[in-house]
Simulated assay, not measured.
Amino acid sequence: MSAPVIHRTSAGQRSWSTIIALLRGVGSLMLIIAIIGVLWVGLLQVFDVSDYVGKNPADVWEYLFTTPEAAEHRADIASLLAVTLRDAAVGFVAGLLAASALATAVVTSRVVEAGVMPIALILRSVPLIALAPIIILLVGRGVGVVATMGGIVVLFPALVTIVFGLRSVTDQMRDVVFVYGGSNLDVLLKVAIPSALPAVFSAIRISVPGAFTGALLAEWLATGEGIGYAVVSAANRSQNTRVWALVVVVTIASLLLYMVAQLVERIVLDRFAMAAGTA
């Protein structure tokens, strides 16, 4: 058995596949939003939450679109969302780059694996709120704390997923590379990384909601900016409709970016379909 080979599909097939993937993504997003809406209303009714605390979708819609101050509310939340998107992007990139580098080191060295995996597990196990004071002391309250907190949330699941993908190389594939004079580096670059492409995209999809979680925690605990801090501030002032609106907006943004990552994955994997071939 030889190394995976890349089969290019025709332009027409790629276009049709992209349209299908886009329609599926939109349909999935609408279904998820509908399910969340039903659960939202249902749980408020089941637990008999007071109207003062528990706001339903109609209340949030009114807050964002129909009240006289709706335009002001949307502009305010949009500015907060922009900050949170920036912070999530910083954590996403930091965590994914760290996971990719560490995964490469782990699959090439047992010594590195023995040192890295326990540390990554510890970072995953310790509540971030407990680590926040130490992180703030070390890196301050700027972009460093955002990158660190977001990176910690993203790191472990992405690391495990990418390591699994890189280790999908079979002994037969490795032997073929060695027979043709290749090295361990050639195995990594020409076989392991292409084979790990689906796992890398899985790590990206997993990392999107994780990056938002890290950003919200960093904003709440350290930076005092973005939606993470605004939710806490609004809750302390009993601005409950604002709290629900902020949560709804950031949830929809996370879902949209997850769907975008899923669509890009489908396009790339359809464009460069990985298949095992025979030499």
Score class of each variant (00 low, 15 high):
12 G>Y: 01
13 Q>Y: 13
13 Q>W: 12
15 S>Q: 11
19 I>N: 03
19 I>Q: 07
22 L>Y: 00
25 G>S: 05
25 G>C: 03
26 V>E: 02
28 S>N: 14
28 S>K: 06
30 M>D: 03
30 M>S: 12
31 L>I: 13
32 I>W: 02
32 I>T: 14
35 I>D: 01
35 I>H: 05
36 I>A: 12
38 V>D: 03
40 W>P: 06
41 V>N: 10
43 L>E: 04
45 Q>F: 13
46 V>E: 05
47 F>E: 07
48 D>S: 15
51 D>H: 15
54 G>L: 01
59 D>S: 06
60 V>L: 02
61 W>N: 11
64 L>M: 09
67 T>F: 00
71 A>C: 03
76 D>S: 08
78 A>P: 01
83 V>D: 07
92 F>Q: 03
92 F>T: 06
94 A>P: 02
95 G>F: 08
97 L>F: 14
99 A>F: 03
101 A>T: 15
103 A>R: 08
104 T>W: 15
107 V>M: 13
109 S>K: 09
110 R>S: 15
117 M>L: 14
125 S>Q: 05
130 A>C: 11
130 A>R: 05
136 I>K: 07
142 G>W: 13
144 G>N: 07
149 M>P: 06
149 M>V: 11
150 G>A: 00
155 L>W: 08
168 S>V: 00
175 D>M: 03
176 V>Y: 12
177 V>D: 02
181 G>R: 05
186 D>T: 09
187 V>G: 04
189 L>R: 14
192 A>L: 02
196 A>Y: 01
197 L>N: 01
198 P>Y: 05
198 P>I: 04
213 T>E: 05
215 A>W: 06
218 A>K: 09
226 G>I: 09
230 A>Y: 11
231 V>M: 12
234 A>E: 11
235 A>W: 10
250 V>H: 04
251 T>K: 02
253 A>Q: 08
254 S>H: 08
265 E>Q: 13
266 R>I: 11
267 I>G: 04
277 G>Y: 13
